[in-house]
Simulated scan of single mutants.
Amino acid sequence: MQCPLSFEVMTDPVMNAAGQTYERAAIEKWFARGKRTDPMSGAVLEHTDTRLVPNVLVRGM
Rank of each mutant, 00 (worst) to 15 (best):
P54D: 02
M10C: 08
Y22K: 13
G42K: 11
V56I: 14
W30E: 11
D38G: 00
T37E: 07
L5A: 02
G34F: 05
R33A: 13
A43S: 13
S6K: 05
G34I: 01
M61E: 10
A25K: 12
G42A: 03
L45R: 13
E46F: 15
E28V: 02
G60F: 08
N55P: 00
M40T: 01
S41E: 04
L57S: 13
T21C: 04
F31M: 09
G19S: 07
N55L: 00
L45Y: 01
G34N: 06
T21F: 02
G19H: 04
R51V: 02
G34H: 05
F7I: 10
G60N: 11
A43M: 14
L5S: 05
T21A: 05
R59Y: 01
E23V: 01
T50V: 14
A32C: 08
S41V: 06
V56L: 14
V9T: 09
V9K: 12
Q2G: 10
H47A: 14
S6E: 01
Q2H: 12
E46A: 12
Q20M: 12
P4S: 10
E23H: 04
E46D: 15
G19L: 05
D49A: 15
H47P: 13
G42W: 02
C3H: 11
S41C: 04
S41G: 03
T50E: 13
S6I: 01
S41Q: 11
P13T: 07
P4M: 09
A43G: 10
T50C: 15
T11E: 12
S6N: 00
M15H: 13
P54M: 05
T11P: 10
Q20Y: 08
A32P: 07
P4V: 05
G34S: 03
R33T: 10
A17G: 00
I27Q: 06
Q20H: 13
L52F: 07
L52Y: 04
E28G: 04
T48L: 13
R51I: 03
T37A: 08
D38C: 03
M10Y: 10
M10T: 06
I27C: 05
L5E: 04
T37Y: 03
L5N: 10
K29I: 03
T50I: 15
L57F: 10
R36N: 01
A43V: 12
G60D: 10
V14G: 01
M15I: 09
